[in-house]
């Protein structure tokens, strides 16, 4: 098993080096490469309908890469949860002898709904202002994180979170395949109407994809955290 992983990693790295090398030598002139940025800036409003060009690039121009990133995040979540099992004895033990104090407990509970609301705002307005699925999802997950840190009894609906995570991943793929069989005939083609520039319902499927990304990021992070804390409390009980 370990050997297989090693071979896969080395193979992947070699593939990466070869691709980068070929890219370096095959590019005929630098100016051609440099023109990509200005071209994107010029065509982005018409093509994607998103006011935030960075978001348009992340979700539309390189939507495929974003899908890959979500997959990488899933793999790392898996890795960390395996790590959590390994550190069951020790590392997180001290943390659970203490509940964080009343002010932090009540304070994090009071602020939690509002922080999640800000996260949702950031996700939904990702195509209009700085932000998007990744930072929004992280905000939501970290707010839950603080509440988990301050309570010994909080039960995380693991099943629900796993289902959400899976559905988000499948949803991303489904939207991609809808694009593939649409008239545009390309994976992740932006086939939804562009809407009025600058309003919430604009930029076609970009807000939808960002919502999916946010759900995936948030549920994966919450999953990691709850597994880590479960490992911590297991080690505490073992010590007692």
């Amino acid at each position: 098993m370990r050997k297989l992983i090693g071979i896969l990693l080395i193979g992947g790295f070699a593939f990466y080096l070869i691709t980068v090398g070929m890219g370096l030598f095959s590019a005929e002139s630098r100016s051609e490469l440099d023109s990509v940025g200005s071209e994107i800036l010029a065509t982005s409003p018409d093509l994607s309908g998103a006011a935030n060009t960075v978001t348009a690039v992340v979700v539309q121009y390189r939507g495929f890469d974003t899908l890959g990133e979500v997959t990488v995040l899933f793999a790392s979540a898996l890795g960390v949860s395996m790590l959590a099992m390994a550190i069951r004895d020790g590392l997180l033990q001290d943390l659970f002898d203490d509940d964080g104090g009343f002010v932090l407990q009540a304070g994090s509970l009071a602020l939690l709904p509002f922080i999640v609301l800000v996260g949702i705002y950031i996700v939904l307005h990702g195509h209009l202002s700085p932000g998007g699925g990744f930072p929004g999802g992280v905000i939501i997950a970290t707010a839950v994180f603080v509440v988990i840190l301050t309570s010994k009894t909080l039960s995380i609906p693991r099943g629900l979170i796993n289902v959400l995570e899976t559905l988000a991943g499948l949803g991303f793929l489904a939207i991609g395949f809808v694009g593939l069989y649409s008239p545009a005939q390309s994976f992740l083609a932006n086939i939804l109407p562009k809407g009025e520039f600058g309003s919430l319902l604009s930029a076609g499927f970009i807000p939808v994809i960002y919502a999916i990304v946010a759900i995936k990021v948030a549920s994966e992070l919450i999953n990691i955290i709850s597994k880590l804390t479960a490992a911590g409390s297991a080690s505490r009980e073992a010590a007692e």
């Binding site: 203490d98 964080g100 002010v103 932090l104 304070g107 009071a110 602020l111």
Partner: peptide
Amino acid sequence: VFIAMANPVSSSTIGRSAYK
């Protein structure tokens, strides 16, 4: 409003954990 609610909480938390 957020700063008025969150700032004292984080200060209290730092103070408490420093004492503990």
